[in-house]
Design a protein around this nucleic acid. Structure first.
Length: 439
RNA sequence: GUGGGCGUAGCUCAGCUGGUUAGAGCGCCAGGUUGUGGCCCUGGAGGCCGGGGGUUCAAGUCCCCUCGCUCACCCCA
């Protein structure tokens, strides 16, 4: 243990974390960009908030007896003795920011953030992972629940996923849940001896957790337990009906889960989860969310409704891999400059290309032409721009296409940018938006 | 927090019942082609065989400890 536990040798990333190198990292930035486009196009604005908060933000919102806050949170005192915590989930921070700045309601915010939990790592589970999420505060309308589910569902589909299912349920609210929990507790207590070891003990702190237990002992008991959905008050039942009607209207399929209990205390009414059918691991939840009409109050504000979701980016990408989704790679370079005259031409030409809005790179250290050509090939560039003694003398550049069989040709130095553009630069993106001033 | 599996070159791995200078493929570098990538050929660099201790004439190979990775439980994205 202790600070000297690291063995001699290369430094390494902390347990449960990982480095994502190029080009794999492209999947992260492109997915986040896709998400941003979707939510911004749906009226959500980015909330950029600190990665750590005062611990109380999470303790009050998530619930002390929840593992995420009780056992897994990275919590520490800073140099001023303030108790801080690295963000273990996304929603509480958004609500805290709302309370601090009081943006006009309804407030629709989105975020992309790393989350930290000190768990034992395993497949598809890390100590630092990334979530993309949205939160809508100040709207009680069931149609907002539907919108939130639609956004999540749409994002997953835009990522190319198809093999996943949506589970929805309702947690009730302050009117109906207490009565239900009492009834559930009574049922469970009557069968206390039949429960698994863990839940025999935890039964009293949070009876609803037992519904989540996968052990056969608990399953046996909960199979005959009173169902939450049968105990919703009129208002909650009507809300849930409207959510379901909305999903039906939008053609979003789902399965009803009468025992869907999300981990955090703040949920009320609608809860939902997306589970991948493709991930070959125990951790197949892609994301989830729900309504949390009591959270603002729990953190010290007036009663304010809210609903949102968080999606695990790593899991989405794992699911894409499992489903064989062909995630597009990064756009290739337009040109790679090969200079065998000392490097001065490469220096000037490369910068000129970049100033013209082209994607360009070059070789350094005066490597052999063969070595530079290998780098050009490996870079993925569409063309190599070769400058040798002849070109230097003639004031030209040899434009050599690398991706197709087209013939190479000499181009005057002043015309290189145009020639490279003409080879199909930016063919995918806005065709003529690349040019700046005419140079 | 609990349990299982595994730690040999940058990567994926081979090293039989312990026996001399530890191997392959890929990747990398160089040369074959003195102005040209992708294919091919040749050569090269690169390993305290995770770390420590023990058994033995001898350990990458056996034993113990430790660190790390990994999978599952728990919990969760």
């Amino acid at each position: 243990m202790g600070s000297e536990s690291e063995e001699r040798g290369a430094a390494r990333a902390p347990t449960g974390t990982r480095d994502v190198l190029w080009p794999e990292s492209w999947q992260f930035e492109s997915s986040a960009a896709r998400f941003a486009a979707l939510v911004q196009g749906s009226g959500y604005g980015l909330l950029q908030s600190p990665t750590f908060e005062y611990s109380s933000v999470f303790r009050k919102g998530i619930g002390e007896e929840n593992d995420v806050v009780g056992r897994e949170m990275y919590e520490f005192a800073d140099r001023d003795g303030k108790l801080l915590a690295l963000r273990p989930e996304g929603t509480a921070s958004v609500v805290r920011a709302y309370l601090q700045h009081r943006p006009t309601l309804p407030w629709k915010a989105w975020y992309a953030t790393p989350l930290f939990r000190h768990e034992r790592p395993q497949a598809a589970r890390y100590r630092q992972h990334h979530q993309l999420g949205i939160e809508a505060l100040g709207v009680a309308d069931a149609d907002m629940d539907v919108e939130v589910v639609w956004v999540a569902d749409t994002f997953l589909r835009e990522m190319g996923l198809a093999d996943f299912s949506l589970h929805i349920g309702s947690m009730g609210d302050g009117t109906c849940r207490p009565g239900y929990v009492a009834e559930l507790a009574a049922h469970l207590s009557a069968h206390r001896d039949e429960l698994c070891d863990d839940h025999r003990l935890r039964l009293d702190t949070n009876p609803m957790r037992v519904l989540d237990c996968k052990r056969p002992e608990c399953r046996g008991v909960t199979a005959g337990a009173p169902r939450l959905l049968d105990h919703l008050c009129e208002a909650c039942a009507a809300h849930f009906d409207r959510v379901r009607a909305g999903l039906d209207a939008l053609g979003i399929g789902y399965e009803l889960y009468d025992r869907l209990v999300r981990g955090f205390d703040y949920y009320t009414r609608t809860t939902f989860e997306f589970a991948s059918g493709a991930i070959d691991a125990a951790q197949n939840a892609l994301g989830g969310g729900g309504r949390y009409d009591g959270l603002v109050e729990m953190l010290g504000g007036e009663p304010t409704p809210g609903v949102g979701f968080g999606i695990g980016l790593e899991r989405v990408l794992i699911a894409c891999g499992a489903e064989g989704v062909d995630l597009s790679g990064p756009p290739p370079l337009d040109a790679f400059v090969v200079d065998v005259t000392g490097g001065g031409a490469a220096r000037d030409l490369t910068i000129a290309l970049r100033r013209a809005g082209l994607r360009a790179d070059r070789a350094f250290d005066g490597r052999s032409m063969k070595a530079q050509m290998k780098l050009a090939d490996r870079s993925g560039a569409r063309v190599a721009l070769i400058v040798g003694p002849e070109e230097l003398r003639a004031g030209t550049v040899l434009v050599r296409p690398l991706r197709d069989g087209a013939a190479q040709r000499q181009v005057g130095t002043a015309d290189v940018v145009g020639a490279v553009s003409g080879e199909g630069a930016f063919s995918g993106e806005g065709a003529s938006s690349g040019e700046r001033e005419g140079t």
